[in-house]
Amino acid sequence: MVNNAGINGYGPFAEVDAGLLTRVLNVNVVALTALTRAAVPGMPARGRGAVINVASLPAFAGDLPPDPLPRRAVYAGSKGYAVTFTRTPAAELAGTPLRVQVVCPGLTATEFHLGAGDAPVSGERRVHDEGGMPAADVVTASLAGLEAGEVVCVPGLTDAEAVARLAEAELGLRAGSGSRTAPRSSHGE
């Protein structure tokens, strides 16, 4: 199963229509979760299966300023959810013939960026003015990554260790789970 539906709701957070932001969350988070949940339980009985959730590099963009990136608070947050969510069932299914992957392309040569997701893109099919990676190349990279066991696939990433460094950084952050505050948080004590 490939969860590729998504809308962006781009714009300054305080100015984007609240209804559009709800639609972004419903498509990018709620539908992705529900569809993954519907697909995965039947896979063990068949002894095979895969889920590919499509996120985006803005999942890792956090507070990077706009230009060249769009204003993207809810979109980036929803794609961050897709990354974190996908990694968990992938870990739960490790060691089985089942695969779960999140693919995080950068700018892709589709019409996706020509609208905010509040209405279909009208006119003839065309792509973002900046071009981007051909969609077929994103698919090829994702499938090759799935075959190689990549849980997080970034099609244009040449530094293969970057994802491992991210996981190491996350492990370091989880070391902050304790019963006492860190010295920098103790207000002068």
Rank of each mutant, 00 (worst) to 15 (best):
G11K: 02
E92G: 07
L21H: 15
P134H: 01
P120L: 01
G11T: 01
R46A: 15
P58N: 01
K79E: 04
G188K: 11
L20G: 13
S142L: 12
L171Y: 09
V163Y: 11
A141F: 13
L69D: 04
T110P: 00
G11W: 01
T96G: 10
V152F: 12
G9C: 13
A38Q: 09
L173S: 13
P97H: 13
E111R: 03
L64E: 07
E161V: 10
A116W: 03
A59F: 00
R37V: 06
G131R: 10
G19N: 07
S56H: 04
R72C: 03
Y81L: 03
A182P: 07
N8Q: 14
A59Q: 01
A136Q: 02
P183E: 00
Y81G: 01
A73V: 02
A34P: 01
F85Y: 15
M1F: 11
V102Y: 07
A34G: 02
V103W: 07
L173E: 14
L143G: 09
N8S: 15
G47T: 14
R71A: 07
A136W: 00
R99A: 13
R72G: 02
K79D: 03
V121G: 02
G131M: 08
A167G: 10
E111F: 01
V24Q: 12
L57T: 13
I52L: 15
G106Q: 03
V30H: 10
V151I: 07
G131Q: 09
T33R: 05
N8K: 12
V51W: 11
T84Q: 14
Y10P: 02
V27A: 08
T84K: 10
S142N: 10
F112C: 00
A136I: 02
S78A: 04
G6N: 01
D17V: 12
D137F: 03
V51A: 11
G117E: 12
A119W: 05
G176T: 12
R46I: 06
G11N: 00
L146E: 10
D137N: 06
L166H: 14
G80H: 07
P65D: 14
G11M: 01
A116P: 04
A50P: 07
C104D: 10
F13Q: 05
E130S: 05
E130H: 05
R125Q: 06
R165M: 12
M133S: 05
G47S: 13
A55G: 04
A18H: 04
R174I: 06
A14L: 03
F85A: 15
G156F: 01
R125G: 03
G188D: 10
A39D: 08
S177N: 14
C104I: 09
A38H: 09
A45C: 08
G188T: 10
D67M: 05
T110R: 00
R87E: 15
